[in-house]
């Protein structure tokens, strides 16, 4: 038994090896984006006011990576229903969450 087999790391065929590569790419991208997020705050290299937009962009990028790689959302036909469900939920959530923030911020401004 080879070391790879002992560690449960051997691949059965090329297809499994390809899927593993895919997940590993996802892991590496996630780590890079996470490190970039923490670095943008902890190093203080970014000019003042740039940290928040940078964090939002990095989080969005990482969420897309997770959806594509770990949750298998793509543009092929059999995934289209999953994607439509996701986009419709984001639309509803966007209206509710953005509306909440807008209304409450407006109220706060008027109370000042």
């Amino acid at each position: 038994m080879s070391l790879k087999q002992k560690l449960l790391l051997d691949s059965k065929n090329a297809e499994e090896a390809a899927e593993r590569r895919f997940y590993t790419i996802g892991l590496v991208l996630s780590i890079v984006l996470t490190v970039a997020s923490f670095a943008s705050v902890m190093t203080g290299l970014l000019p003042h006011g740039w940290a928040l937009p940078a964090l939002a962009l990095l989080a969005l990028a990482q969420i897309v990576v997770h959806l594509r790689i770990f949750l298998h959302i793509d543009l092929t036909r059999q995934k289209r229903e999953d994607l439509q469900l996701l986009l419709f939920t984001i639309l509803l959530l966007g209206m509710m969450a953005f509306g909440t923030l807008w209304i409450m911020a407006d109220l706060e401004a008027r109370m000042m």
């Binding site: 996470t34 997020s37 923490f38 943008s40 705050v41 940290a51 928040l52 964090l55 939002a56 990095l58 989080a59 990482q62 969420i63 997770h66 959806l67 770990f70 949750l71």
Partner: peptide
Amino acid sequence: LDVVWVGIFSMVFLA
């Protein structure tokens, strides 16, 4: 749940 955590660590803790 990991996707939700991405939102929490960036928007709650880091931000």
